[in-house]
Design a protein around this nucleic acid. Structure first.
Lengths: 143, 143
DNA sequence: TATTGTTATACTCTATAACTATA
DNA sequence: TATAGTTATAGAGTATAACAATA
């Protein structure tokens, strides 16, 4: 029985999940603004850099977001010279998202900063605890 | 090297944290609508039931939200007969939030549903893993 | 009929600033 | 000067519906 009223919720893993996620996302956002990226932008661009030619629908599916919300995001990245929408031979509905060299370099740099961010934000956990946390979280949402 | 593009993000604990939190929050929201509650409403009311007389500012601090965002929420709960704003002797700025018996019963019922929800949504984890997850998450955001 | 990309829109959540009455 | 409660507002994030082009 502690004095802090927050103790009335500390038993709820869902609650702690939400609070932890908020803290981590806020820190990540601060790191990524230095690269002109948001969390979704970084995630999408990282997939595109490592899976050149992927379609917008497949990126949306991978990120678990609606494809309609990806349109402006891809527009922005294209407008900044980080990718192009190339035609797909055999399916004229689809666009092959092709990262530029600038995108590859940007993600490479951002990856370093993101790794440092994760190290900082999970600093209270040992290396094995960090791996265990990641494993348990994937069990929750991947199933 | 897997085929799913999501694999390009699976190493990021922050990303898995966000996805897991979204899944859990969505399921919780579905459970709580049956009680006419949202996640924040449930959390706030649970604190008020267990800490009768607490002020709005202290509830906001415990939940990590702005006190301005609590006003309408408290208005709703008061309008539904779940709490009253009682005067605090000695400080006329402050309101003592007093839960009604209906609120106590509502939270008691909701607690059962929330416990079942947590059991379901973390079903892939063993009992010890669930406890470990909760411990690690609190290390992240409480510090 | 179903899918890809697109537009427009609405809704939720949250943060901020400014105000009042009290301390 | 600082705090509790309040109001209004603006931004971000996300979901939904509808459409054109293509399969």
């Amino acid at each position: 029985m502690t004095d802090d009223p927050e103790a009335e919720l500390s038993h709820l893993t869902g609650y702690n999940l939400k609070r932890a996620s908020a803290v981590v996302q806020a820190d990540l956002a601060g790191v990524l603004t230095g690269f002109g990226l948001r969390a979704v932008t970084y995630s999408a661009l990282r997939i595109i850099v490592r899976r050149p030619g992927i379609s917008q629908s497949d990126v949306a599916d991978a990120l678990g977001i609606e494809k309609s919300n990806l349109v402006q995001l891809i527009d922005d990245l294209a407008g900044r010279g980080l990718l192009t929408r190339a035609p797909v031979p055999g399916d004229r509905r689809r666009h092959a998202l092709m990262p530029t060299d600038a995108a590859t370099r940007l993600i490479e740099d951002a990856d370093g900063a993101v790794a440092a961010h994760e190290q900082a934000v999970f600093a209270r956990l040992g290396a094995d605890e960090q791996r265990e946390l990641n494993r348990l979280l994937r069990l929750v949402w991947v199933g």
